[in-house]
Design a protein around this nucleic acid. Sequence first.
DNA 1: CCAGAAGTACGATCGCTGTCAAACTTTGAT
DNA 2: ATCAAAGTTTGACAGCGATCGTACTTCTGG
Lengths: 107, 107
Amino acid sequence: MGRTPPHPDVSQFDLQLVLEALVDPVRRSIVSQLDAAGEDRACGSFDMPVSKSTATHHFKVLREAGLIRQYYVGTSRMNALRRAEMDEAFPGLLDALTARRTAVARG
Amino acid sequence: MGRTPPHPDVSQFDLQLVLEALVDPVRRSIVSQLDAAGEDRACGSFDMPVSKSTATHHFKVLREAGLIRQYYVGTSRMNALRRAEMDEAFPGLLDALTARRTAVARG
DNA sequence: CCAGAAGTACGATCGCTGTCAAACTTTGAT
DNA sequence: ATCAAAGTTTGACAGCGATCGTACTTCTGG
């Protein structure tokens, strides 16, 4: 569907949801890749050892936790890291987790 | 028993294990209480909504992730937060998670 | 208009983990 | 010696979530 999916507001960010999102290695890798890229990227452009349907699931979890913002460009769904807002809600958290320690594991 | 349980060395701290430990609300509460107390505390002295056997499980997970150090004093098992070592391995992580967000000012 | 590309939606597994109760161990006090 | 306190161990169970394949939708290019 072309409609924009629901995104939580910064005031509704929940630490529990954020941690549940970041505890998964695949999702943490997505965040790291997005952070390293410094620009928005399509779902399909990520290096991920899972199927497309599983990838969709991971992006949804990240979006609902407030970690990424998603919007369509043609058939591609773009993903933007909501770093400033995360830093506002949980100062230091993303810094601690994106510290070039990235390892992509098969889970 | 009575013997000291195994503790990982700082050089072997693993981010994945640490996050898996901290994603559980009960365990995060233990860490927060330990941090707020500023001193070692016995297992039974924590405010936890679970049974003793479940508590034992949580302390074990925290210990194996390197978040706490455990030692016996009489029949009590004391718990110490390994903050300095955690800060060394993952700078800013515990700070971000033990931040009291109810308060306003932050020095 | 049609084919392909990019994702989503939907079930269905399947393993993991948080939970408890019950039995046990160790220590300290009476 | 006995008893209670503090945890541990074991075994079982329930629910969640990561995974996949298949079918479906939407958009773009020819």
